[in-house]
Simulated scan of single mutants.
Amino acid sequence: MKRCTESFTIWRDGAPVGFVAGQLVEDKHPILKTHGHLFAEPVATAGQAAAPLKPVEEATANPGEQRTLTPPTTVVSSEPTGAEPFDPAEHTIPQVLAYLKDADDEERARVLDIEAAGEKRKGILGDTAAKE
């Protein structure tokens, strides 16, 4: 195995072929015939032989192959993360108003109904709370 010491690109069969510094190639790779001066033996630590290293993974799949993708582990959402629906009684007036600003019509009606049946804060319901 030889390690690339400097990144470079060549054209082969009308397409660019890139080599990245640190990339490993087999001793019989054709690039060594023309660009062998850009490759060196893998470095071993003092008193140890060089450990066999894996070649760099190619970024694309071969024709007919599908790459395996790793799905994200977390999903960011603007909706409340808890299992419980938003309860206006557990929040301050500015928090409730901020939530209502981004809520859809159905959710806005649900939260306002809870507020009207509960605390009836004028800062959320406006003048309709005083009339009831």
Score class of each variant (00 low, 15 high):
K131L: 07
M1D: 09
A130C: 03
E65H: 12
V43S: 04
T45N: 12
R67Y: 07
G126C: 01
E106W: 06
L100G: 04
T70P: 03
A109N: 09
L125D: 00
A44P: 07
V56G: 10
G118I: 05
A44T: 03
Q66N: 12
A61G: 11
E58R: 15
S78I: 11
E115W: 02
P94V: 07
G64S: 00
A49N: 11
T9C: 10
D87V: 08
A46R: 13
S78T: 12
T34W: 10
A98S: 13
A98N: 09
K122N: 05
T92L: 08
L97G: 07
M1V: 09
A98Y: 05
A130V: 06
L38V: 04
L38E: 05
A50V: 03
T9W: 03
L32I: 00
L53I: 06
P52V: 10
L69K: 14
E79R: 15
A46C: 08
G82Y: 00
E107Y: 02
E65A: 12
A129G: 01
E79W: 13
H91E: 07
G36D: 06
Q66T: 14
I124M: 00
H91Y: 07
R12N: 08
T5F: 04
E84P: 01
A49L: 14
P55L: 10
E26S: 15
K28G: 15
A83K: 11
K101A: 15
A44Y: 00
L24V: 03
L24T: 02
Q95F: 06
T34Q: 14
T45A: 15
I10G: 02
D113A: 15
A49C: 10
A89D: 11
M1H: 12
L100K: 02
K131A: 10
A46T: 10
R12S: 14
A21R: 13
T81K: 11
A21D: 03
G14E: 07
A89P: 04
E6D: 11
Q95I: 01
H91L: 04
P55Y: 05
R67L: 15
V76R: 12
G36K: 04
V20R: 12
C4Q: 06
R108E: 01
V96I: 01
G36L: 00
L32A: 02
R110H: 06
A15T: 11
R67H: 06
H37P: 03
R12P: 00
A40H: 08
K33L: 15
D105T: 11
T5L: 09
E119F: 01
S78N: 13
F8C: 05
E132R: 13
P63N: 08
H91F: 07
A15F: 06
G47A: 08
A59G: 15
T70A: 13
E6T: 11
S78K: 12
Q23I: 02
V76T: 14
A129N: 00
D104R: 04
P85G: 03
V17G: 06
P30N: 06
C4K: 06
V96E: 05
T45P: 06
